[in-house]
Amino acid sequence: MRRYFVFCIGGKKFAIPMLEIEEVVLPQEISIVPEQDKYLKGVINLRGEIVTVVDIKIKLGLGDSEIVDKKTCFVVFKVDGHKVAVIVDEVEDVVQIQETEIKDVRDLKKTKFVEGLYRTNNDQLLLIANSRKLLEIDVIEKLKNAA
């Protein structure tokens, strides 16, 4: 049994293991870094630390995120020692999932971010995501350097 953090992006519910999450912060002002990919929104200053903000929605092809929604918040992950803030539409819940009940979908499609599917008791479908797939490390490095 592992605890998963459930959040919502573009109407889809994603679940990520709790240990991969650094913290959840309220939306902040993003410093735009020019000449970058569109899904790289910019960087924020998180208690003196520069954190790259990624719009997963664009990367997943689910449209553009807007931070005007009051439910919007930044979920900060730590990937290989680098903190990345992902804009999520809403943070839902913390759930416990039996890993054996996760259906592996890595073979079905060339998915990068979504690794499996889990059906909850109230018949909701959770997409089990891999935070490492969020961003390529070199891009993160580059961003960091640029910032």
Partner: peptide, 21 residues
């Protein structure tokens, strides 16, 4: 109230994250 609830929620998530850790 919503803001407070939201912030409380985020706080509880962060608390959960810390507890998990």
């Amino acid at each position: 109230i919503d803001d407070i609830v939201f912030q409380t929620k985020i706080l509880s998530f962060n608390a959960s994250v810390e507890a998990e850790r």
